[in-house]
Computed example of a mutant assay.
Amino acid sequence: MKKILLLGGSAQQVIAIKTAKRLGYYTVLCDYLPDNPGQYAADKYYNVSTTDVEAVYKVAMDEKVDGILAYASDPAALPAAIVAERLGLPSNPSASVAVLGVKHNFRKFLSENAFACPRNFTFNVGADIEEVKEKIQELDFPIVVKPTDSSGSKGVTVLKSAEGLNAAIAWAESYSRNKILIVEEFIESNFPAVIGGDIFVWDGQIILYGEMSCLRGNHGNGLVPIGERYPGGMNEKQINNIHTELQRLITALDIRFGELNIEILLDKEDNVHFLEVGPRAGGNMIPIQLSDIFGIDLVEANVLAAMGKKPSINQQKKKGYFVTYVLHSYQNGKFDGVFISDLIIDNVYRKEIYKEKGDLVETFDGAGKAIGILFLRFDTEMELNLFCANTEKLVSISLM
């Protein structure tokens, strides 16, 4: 019985464990959180941090695993690649995974390989604030301050002037593990949304393009993703530009297989700017959403690819307009329930709720504080647009 080592056992990662078991693999799980739900689904569990390369390597050696998968996990993607390389297991080059995983390295790579890239500079937490302010004057406002090693817009602030810089740095630092921050020019765009979603690569070629438009929260800074819609509303030229640049990037980095999460902005000339290309499946159940849209099983594809087996992806889009909505609250409290308007109740075809009645709910500032996810399908683009324009009237969270 072949073994697969899975790095991460959160609620969103359990499906990868269950899928691997369904495919007949013996599942070994590493996760440092003692209350992770994945331990109850896996065949064997190790209380080991997924970012501890040597500890993961020891588990992989002791268990004699045949493949390693860091499903939907940014921090675990590089350790998975390093350990798989050491053991001669299926892997993308760890050097390429390292480039994708840290923003300042990625920006450097983009510039050196003639991809569109905003002007930027990096600095360490604790750097002299006056020196940072001097460097900022070399950029055009607005600017963006962010950690170099987080995703999903965590710790990100947009500034129209140097006012608020100290708070922006503190916010970015709170989400940074490596304590290296980046400041870059804001990309002005004619397209109204960040383009997100996932792609899937096999044998160095993208075999699934799953670009969508991101929904962002209206409260707070409006940067945190609260869903994805498909089709995304891009015209044919924009889609072609996106596909061309994505494949060029995959080729330049020698990415061989697997699902990658994308965040893209189009500038005023429709040039493609890569905000992030994460070397792992997207969070907020993007693989499930794309599986629904295209009639495939991307979770299964991730497991098979990690085991060196070619996945079956025959892309055939289903009829309709699809959107996910991340259930969230902008205040702390105890979960009481979800209100869904009768106007859209029949459009909800899947509902994942992470909380039980009475569970603590925290103010939403990232995917880790989501309450659940709704999956909706509409017959017309007008219905989809109406939902996206009125999400907080049509869906709400009740707190005790």
Rank of each mutant, 00 (worst) to 15 (best):
S341C: 06
E54R: 14
L181H: 06
M234F: 13
Y175H: 15
V303Q: 07
K154R: 15
I226Q: 10
G295F: 11
N261L: 03
A72G: 09
S213P: 01
D198Q: 07
S151I: 14
Q315P: 08
S189W: 08
I313D: 03
G204A: 08
L181I: 12
T51V: 15
D379R: 12
I344S: 02
I195V: 15
I195R: 08
G217F: 00
S312W: 01
N241Q: 09
F257G: 00
H328Y: 09
R248E: 05
E131F: 08
S111P: 02
A11P: 00
D292F: 07
F186P: 01
E263S: 15
Y40C: 07
F121I: 10
N241E: 11
H328E: 12
F274M: 06
F109I: 01
M382I: 15
F115E: 01
F322V: 05
D66W: 02
A172P: 06
T27K: 01
S329Q: 05
V125T: 13
C388D: 07
G333F: 07
V361S: 04
G227K: 11
A72Y: 11
S49M: 10
A72V: 13
Q315N: 06
H273K: 04
M61S: 14
L89H: 05
L384R: 09
V144E: 12
I397L: 09
D198F: 00
V326C: 13
D52H: 09
E356P: 00
I68S: 11
D140M: 10
E300G: 05
N347P: 01
G196Y: 06
F186R: 04
E131S: 15
R177W: 02
G67T: 13
A60S: 02
L69E: 09
G164N: 08
S341E: 07
I345F: 10
V144L: 12
T122L: 10
I264H: 03
G24Y: 05
F339M: 12
L374E: 11
N120R: 00
I313N: 09
L159M: 07
Q205D: 14
D140C: 09
I397H: 02
G88S: 04
A370T: 11
G210K: 04
Q12S: 12
G9N: 06
Y354K: 13
K44C: 12
Q205Y: 11
F322S: 02
G9K: 05
K334L: 14
